[in-house]
Write a protein that binds this DNA or RNA. Structure first.
Length: 222
DNA sequence: ACCCAGGGTCATA
DNA sequence: TATGACCATGGG
């Protein structure tokens, strides 16, 4: 059977039909997407919005000023995003690297895998953060795997859930066409869905994936 | 008061 | 390779 009829694609269609197209990733410039990718690490997006608003007020949401900013000062500005000392260090390190590489045009010219590896080599940027940047800032077809993806797809019994990141990602790449818009929208839908359903609440009833989902409120079915 | 959020690193076994 | 500790704010 073709990729269009895989359970992965059907799940995408169900989510899209139910939730509609999701606006994702909200940002004014591509660099802001990368900043957001670092700030949102294990942090609610509402907190990231506050931190980004603060950065803009101080004109620190661009590579140049960020690269030369003072770490402790920056930390106070991004305070609402949590882990502010770590993240201030990560933002500065990333901004300096970004400029050293020649900025967006130089990086965009790299092959996707080269760009991904280069990002992973930076301390503070792991696989999900790197893929956020690759997919949303550079528009290259790399699927973003997060904890929601593991949880939802293991409950659908489509994956074990314990696979390594790259193994899980490879699975999505083989089940779906290498389409940037598809990957962007799919990840967005997964996050939207996870927030409304698939939590430890009765909201799981009426979920658009209920037929396939093995989760029951109060316990994991087995 | 407790739990979790659009993770990642480092030390230890 | 695989756990555990740590980072920290804000909303439910």
């Amino acid at each position: 059977m073709g990729v269009e009829s895989s359970a992965f694609y059907q799940t995408y269609q169900r989510l899209l039909d139910y939730y509609g197209s999701q606006p994702w990733w909200p940002a004014e410039h591509v660099f802001e997407i990368m900043v957001g990718a670092i700030l949102t690490q294990n942090t609610a997006w509402t907190n990231v919005e506050k931190a980004i608003a603060n950065l803009k007020q101080h004109s620190l949401c661009e590579a140049q000023p960020l690269a030369v900013s003072e770490q402790d000062h920056l930390a106070q500005i991004i305070r609402p995003s949590g882990y502010f000392n770590q993240k201030a260090q990560r933002l500065i390190r990333f901004a300096r690297w970004y400029l050293e590489q020649g900025g967006y045009p130089s990086l965009q010219a790299l092959a996707p895998e080269q760009l991904r590896q280069a990002l992973l080599a930076i301390n503070g940027i792991g696989e999900e953060t790197a893929d956020d940047m690759v997919l949303y800032a550079f528009a290259m077809p790399y699927f973003v795997i997060d904890s929601y993806t593991r949880r939802i797809f293991s409950r659908l019994a489509l994956v074990a859930g314990t696979e390594k990141y790259t193994a899980l990602q490879a699975r999505f790449h083989s089940e779906l066409e290498a389409d940037v818009e598809l990957y962007q929208q799919y990840h967005a839908l997964i996050v939207t869905h996870a927030k409304q359903h698939c939590m430890k609440t009765p909201e799981c009833m009426g979920c658009p994936l209920t037929e396939r989902c093995e989760f029951e409120y109060g316990r994991e079915k087995k």
